[in-house]
C-alpha cells in the first residue's frame, strides 16, 4: 500500500467525517441563529455557550425506544431513512473542496482535495439528489398513516418539480465552463477582472445563481418551501411515525443535503476555493467561509419569511422558476456563441 493511496483514502474519510460534523454543527448553528433572531439566547446550558448541545441531542435520540407501527411495512420502514442518508452522502462524493496539495511536501505528486473527480461530476450530484426522493416517498408510504402518506407524496412531488429548474440552472454554468467536472468549473473561475473583481460565475449568471439557490432550498425541503414537514399543518409530515435513530437520520440527511447544495453553489458560482491573500493550498479555508455564508443565509431565510402553501409552491416552481431557468439557459447559450464566434 503506497503512501499516495493511503492519503487518498484519508481524504475520502476526512470528507465523510466532515459531512457528519457539518450536520451536527448545523443543528447547533440553526438553534443559536434562530435564537438570536428571535431575541433570545439559543442553547446555553450544555457545555460552554451550548456547544455540546448536538451531542446531547444525539445521545437522547439514540436512547429513545425504537418504535415501528404495526401496519408498517417491515423492510421499507427501515430502508427509507437508510436510502435518504445514503443518497445525501453520495451526492457530496464528486464535490471538490480544495485545490491540489502535497501536504507540505510529504507526497511526490499533489493529491486533489475531494472524494472523487469524475468528468461528469455535476451530473452525479444531480443523480444522487434525485435518489433522495426515494427515501422520502418510501418513508411516507411505509408508515401506513395518513399524515405520513400526504407529507411524503407532497414532499416528493415538490422535489421532482424543482429538480428541473435545478438542472437547467446547472446546465447554464456547464455551458460557461465548457466542462462537466466540478473541479474544472472551479478552475475556470481563478483570477480577476481588472485585478479587483473575481471571475466568479455569479457575476456572469446572476439570474442563474438566484434560480439555483431557490431551487436548492426547495430541493432540500427547507423554508419557505417546507410545507411537507410543516409542524403546524401536518404533525410532522413523512417522519411522523419515526422515532430514535431512524428519525435522527432524516434531519441529518436534510442537513447534509443543505451542505451539498451550499458546496455546489460555492463551487459553481462563487469561485470555490479561490480567494485573495491565501496561497492555493489553503484555499479550503475560503471554501469553508463561503459555504458557511450560504448556510447562514439558509437559516436566516428560514426564520424570516413565512412558508408557501403547497399549491402556491407548485405553481411557483412550474410557472415561474422553470421558464426563468430555460430563458437563462437560452440566453447564456446565445451569448456564449456570440462571444466565442
Amino acid at each position: 500500500m503506497d503512501l499516495r493511496l493511503l492519503v487518498q483514502l484519508g481524504v475520502i474519510g476526512l470528507t465523510f467525517f466532515m459531512l457528519i460534523n457539518a450536520s451536527a454543527l448545523l443543528v447547533y448553528a440553526e438553534r443559536k441563529v434562530m435564537g438570536f433572531m428571535q431575541q433570545r439566547y439559543g442553547p446555553y446550558l450544555v457545555g460552554p455557550h451550548g456547544l455540546l448541545q448536538p451531542l446531547a441531542d444525539i445521545l437522547k435520540l439514540m436512547m429513545k425506544e425504537e418504535l415501528r407501527p404495526k401496519g408498517a411495512d417491515r423492510w421499507l420502514f427501515t430502508l427509507a431513512p437508510v436510502l435518504a442518508i445514503t443518497a445525501a452522502f453520495a451526492a457530496f462524493a464528486t464535490v471538490p473542496w480544495g485545490a491540489e496539495t502535497t501536504f507540505f511536501g510529504l507526497l511526490a505528486e499533489p493529491v486533489k482535495l475531494g472524494a472523487a473527480d469524475i468528468n461528469v461530476g455535476v451530473l452525479v450530484v444531480f443523480a444522487m439528489t434525485s435518489m433522495g426522493v426515494y427515501g422520502i416517498v418510501l418513508a411516507g408510504w411505509s408508515s401506513n398513516s395518513k399524515y405520513s402518506l400526504l407529507g411524503g407524496l407532497r414532499a416528493s412531488a415538490q422535489m421532482i418539480s424543482y429538480e428541473l429548474s435545478y438542472a437547467t440552472a446547472l446546465s447554464a454554468v456547464i455551458l460557461l465552463a465548457g466542462s462537466m467536472s466540478i473541479r474544472e468549473v472551479v478552475d475556470g473561475q481563478a483570477g480577476a477582472w481588472f485585478g479587483v473583481i473575481p471571475r466568479w460565475y455569479v457575476f456572469l449568471q446572476p439570474l442563474g445563481f438566484i434560480i439555483y439557490i431557490i431551487a436548492g432550498v426547495a430541493e432540500t425541503n427547507r423554508a419557505p418551501f417546507d410545507f411537507p414537514e410543516a409542524e403546524q399543518e401536518l404533525v410532522a409530515g413523512y417522519n411522523t411515525e419515526y422515532s430514535s435513530v431512524r428519525f435522527a437520520l432524516f434531519p441529518q440527511a436534510e442537513y447534509i443535503n443543505m451542505t451539498t447544495m451550499a458546496a455546489v453553489a460555492t463551487d459553481l458560482y462563487l469561485g470555490g476555493w479561490h480567494g485573495p491573500f491565501l496561497p492555493p493550498e489553503y484555499g479550503w479555508i475560503w471554501f469553508l467561509v463561503k459555504v458557511g455564508a450560504i448556510l447562514f443565509t439558509y437559516i436566516w431565510v428560514r426564520w424570516t419569511v413565512p412558508r408557501y402553501r403547497y399549491d402556491q409552491l407548485m405553481q411557483f416552481g412550474w410557472k415561474w422558476l422553470f421558464p426563468a431557468s430555460v430563458i437563462n439557459l437560452i440566453a447564456t447559450a446565445a451569448l456564449v456563441l456570440y462571444f466565442n464566434a
Binding site: 452525479v124 416517498v137 421532482i160
Partner: peptide, 25 residues
C-alpha cells in the same frame, strides 16, 4: 460510458421508477 451511466440513474432510476412508485402507491 459515464454519460450513459449517469443518464440511466437520472432518467430511469430517478424519474421513471419514481413514476412507477407513485402509480403503485
Amino acid at each position: 460510458a459515464p454519460f450513459v451511466a449517469v443518464a440511466q440513474i437520472i432518467i430511469y432510476a430517478g424519474a421513471v421508477m419514481v413514476l412507477f412508485l407513485f402509480v403503485v402507491m
